[in-house]
C-alpha cells in the first residue's frame, strides 16, 4: 500500500487526468470553425486597442509581498500551536511575542499607508466652494493666491 503522501500524489494526478479526459471528450464532440473575428481578443466587440500586457497597479505587488511575509510567519506558528499547551507559559509567551511582532508589522503597514487603495476624490461643485474660491471666477489678471486643483491621487 502507498503511504498517505502517495495518495496525495494520486489525488493530484487524478485531478489532471480528469481535466484531460473531459477536455479531450469536449474536443471530439465540439465543432471547430475558427475565423479571424472569433479568434480576436474580446474587448466589447471593438478591435482591441493597445497591448494588455502593461504595467499594472503597484499596489498588487505590495500586497503580494506583504502576504508572503505574513504567510511564511504563519507557517512557523502551526508547529508551535500543536505543542505550546504542553510546554506551558514560556512557550505561550514566545509564541505571543511572535504574533505581536506580526501585529506590529500590520500596524507599520497601516501607518505607512501601504494598505490604502487609491481612491478618486471627486470635487463636488457647491455654491459655497465657488464663493470661497471666487478667484477662480474672477477675470484673468488678478493672480489667484489659493491654487485649488482637484485632488487626483
Amino acid at each position: 500500500m502507498l503511504t498517505e503522501f502517495g495518495k496525495v500524489l494520486i489525488f493530484f494526478l487524478l485531478g489532471g487526468v480528469f481535466v484531460g479526459v473531459t477536455l479531450a471528450v469536449s474536443r471530439l464532440v465540439s465543432p471547430r470553425r475558427p475565423s479571424k473575428e472569433k479568434m480576436m481578443t474580446y474587448e466589447c466587440g471593438e478591435d482591441p486597442i493597445g497591448e494588455p500586457w502593461v504595467k499594472f497597479n503597484i499596489r498588487f505587488y505590495v500586497i503580494a509581498l506583504i502576504f508572503l511575509l505574513f504567510d511564511v510567519e504563519l507557517a512557523f506558528l502551526f508547529p508551535w500551536a500543536t505543542v505550546y499547551a504542553d510546554l506551558g507559559m514560556f512557550a505561550y509567551v514566545a509564541g505571543a511575542l511572535f504574533i505581536l511582532v506580526l501585529f506590529l508589522a500590520d500596524c507599520y503597514l497601516w501607518a505607512k499607508g501601504d494598505l490604502e487603495w487609491i481612491r478618486p476624490e471627486p470635487e463636488i461643485p457647491k455654491l459655497a466652494n465657488l464663493i470661497e474660491h471666487s478667484e477662480l471666477i474672477t477675470p484673468p489678471g488678478s493672480s489667484p493666491e489659493k491654487e485649488h486643483a482637484p485632488v487626483a491621487s
Binding site: 477536455l23 465540439s30 470553425r33
Partner: peptide, 23 residues
Amino acid sequence: KLLMKEDIVPARADKILFNLAPV
C-alpha cells in the same frame, strides 16, 4: 452544452499557459 461548445483560444493568447490554467 459546455461539452459541445466550440473551444476558442484567442489568436494572441499564450497558448500553453492558456490551456494549462484550467488544469
